[in-house]
């Protein structure tokens, strides 16, 4: 087994203010996603207990997710949180993989995503999310059903503006 990554643990200080609400929203989103897709944790098996550091390189913060604890934490880039596995890449790569627009291995072979730490845990997470056919826009809309139509409109607009993949692609949309 690859060793657990041995970076010094994050100091037990409260997060800088703007990050805490973001972490709370992300944790809520994660809990509701895991509720709507109960197969994810089962498919991950023991890997659900791992701490995943998600390093989206063009975003100013780091994300630490712990699926079994249903917890997401947002950390400043200066933090060096203890983690078991790490995935690194641009936001577009993460979103394309999550939504089934691009194959995770292809992103990895091309160097757009890199991984560190417990490779088996990363694969388990990747495969479980791929099977869950998650649609981020729908997950967000599911948090506050009354605001759903607005969330969908906003997401469509953002998608066109930024080129990011913000909803699950259908069979006909998968890129040639």
């Amino acid at each position: 087994m690859p060793g657990r990554m041995t970076q010094p643990p994050m100091p037990a200080l409260p997060l800088p203010l703007p990050l805490s609400p973001l972490a709370a929203v992300l944790s809520m989103l994660m809990r509701s996603t895991l509720r709507r897709h109960p197969a994810i944790l089962g498919r991950m098996g023991a890997a659900a207990g791992a701490r995943f550091l998600i390093d989206v390189t063009n975003v100013p913060v780091l994300l630490l997710i712990e699926p079994a604890l249903r917890r997401a934490r947002v950390l400043p880039r200066s933090a060096r949180p203890a983690h078991d596995a790490a995935i690194r890449g641009r936001l577009s790569a993460f979103l394309s993989m999550l939504h089934g627009a691009e194959d995770g291995d292809a992103l990895f072979f091309s160097g757009e995503l890199t991984i560190g730490g417990d490779t088996a845990a990363v694969l388990a997470l990747r495969n479980a999310l791929d099977d869950a056919e998650i649609d981020l826009t729908e997950e967000i809309a599911g948090l506050a059903p009354a605001a759903g139509p607005m969330a969908r409109r906003l997401s469509g607009l953002l998608e066109r503006r930024t080129g990011l993949s913000l909803h699950r692609v259908t069979e006909t949309e998968v890129r040639e």
Partner: peptide, 13 residues
Amino acid sequence: RQRSRAYVTQVVR
């Protein structure tokens, strides 16, 4: 079989 549904869709098509 270890690849994603995106791979499967593109290759099968």
